[in-house]
Design a protein around this nucleic acid. Structure first.
Lengths: 247, 247
DNA sequence: AAGTGGTCTAGACCACCGC
DNA sequence: CGGTGGTCTAGACCACTTT
């Protein structure tokens, strides 16, 4: 099998890391068909020599592509291009984002913004005493004036200034970041339910229609829970897509 | 802020990579509470010296924990533990997995195993001509004799020997691997639907019940599609959980 | 200014694969 | 057996954050 040595040029004066320059150019060539699926690359040492970087740097660039599922390494065999599709492992995308990307404007209506005692489940998720006050935000997300999702979020007091934020214009995470709270990790659970009467009315579905649910607890730098949300999506308008890569 | 130097012992005679030994022990200490969320670790060079490994190896171990969302690195600041929870990238979670773990084995019933022309959608996903023959497998997954999922899979001819496999005992991916086909990446879409009469009957739900759907196309080493599946899960028994980590 | 993580190098030895 | 990727080292310089 012929082995391929892709043409890559690095700029050592650039602030962009070398491994990233290399990875980016390889990825572009793969996506544009210059390195079709099945192509065997030259071995790491040869590639490093040809591109003028050290082997660890070359390995790091290839590892970048491996993480994205574009390439696979086999010991004793070599490195092979396995697909030319862009893959972002473990990144949730959604039809909603597709709509936004397609130029359709999303809008948000805030249905409720209040302080009230936490339910048992919310208190447990946020690690606060049962019945302690939390901020509750209920929003309806629309695209092209069509309802897409009904989002309910609960937050411990102190992270958000209710008088300041405009959640119709600003995303919740954006508002949190502006207030100095940075989300680091989030646990999510995806399920399905039948719409009850109120949910159906707000979302423009029939009662009993299948809805996608996404329940999320998000944590900040210190591992403190800062947000718990339950989102209901119209299954007829929304889906989650993701790519899994064998490692 | 006091900085912590965890006690780690490495075995240089072990075939387990040093970076993995270090990462594993750190992870265990974090999960067991020895390094609670918020803890600042000592700097990389000091840690490397204390554990008797080089700095790149130490960095690799820490990077392992960063990928799992246990720890965060900040340039000029240090490395901090952000959570003590075990996090897995994506996990299919059954609400009954406790019972399964308690010794009750999940079972599989093969409802259909045949060769027939591909539907338009399947042909597109598998990149084969419209109407070309494919293998269709329909299976019902049960736990404790209770239906959990209805799984329909289509495969191009040639990857599987229908006379040989026993899909009641062997997983589909396991059978493919035995036949020399290795799944490398998979695109998945998660949605929801209302059960139709036949689906409801098989799954033991009422007609119209909300079902979770997972549609997957899997690709092999060469980037060839080798499997397309549509799985229906009882939302009352199943959910997907996953963790997102900010990078 | 001092300390931190981020990048990069030029080697070395090893484990695995296919011939 | 030769070739491949996997691991590891001991340095070096840089960019960023905090004091």
């Amino acid at each position: 099998m012929a082995r391929v040595a892709p043409a890559v040029v690095v700029d050592r004066g650039s602030p962009v890391p070398l491994y990233f320059q290399v990875a980016e150019q390889l990825q572009r060539q793969i996506e544009q068909g210059g390195l079709p699926a099945g192509t065997m690359l030259e071995n790491e040492i040869a590639l490093a020599g040809q591109l003028g970087v050290s082997r660890p740097t070359m390995r790091r660039a290839i590892g970048f592509l491996v993480d994205r599922g574009l390439v696979v390494r086999k010991r004793g065999v070599g490195t092979q291009v396995i697909t030319d599709k862009v893959r972002r492992p473990l990144q949730l995308t959604s039809l909603f984002e597709d709509l936004v990307a397609a130029g359709r404007k999303p809008t948000t209506r805030v249905l409720e913004l209040s302080v009230h005692p936490a339910t048992e489940a919310v208190a447990a998720a946020l690690a606060i005493p049962d019945g302690a006050d939390v901020i509750r935000v209920v929003r309806l997300r629309l695209a092209n004036d069509e309802p897409i999702a009904l989002m309910t979020n609960d937050l411990p007091l102190g992270h958000l200034d209710l008088d300041e934020v405009d959640l119709e214009e600003t995303g919740l995470y954006q508002a949190l970041r502006a207030a100095g709270t940075h989300i680091r990790v989030a646990d999510q659970t995806i399920g399905a339910v039948n719409a009850d009467a109120a949910q159906a009315r707000l979302l423009g579905e029939r009662r009993g229609a299948a809805l996608l649910t996404m329940t999320r607890t998000a944590y900040d730098d210190q591992g403190r829970p800062v947000e718990h949300g339950t989102h209901l999506y119209r299954a007829s308008r929304y889906a989650f897509s993701l790519t899994l890569v064998e490692r």
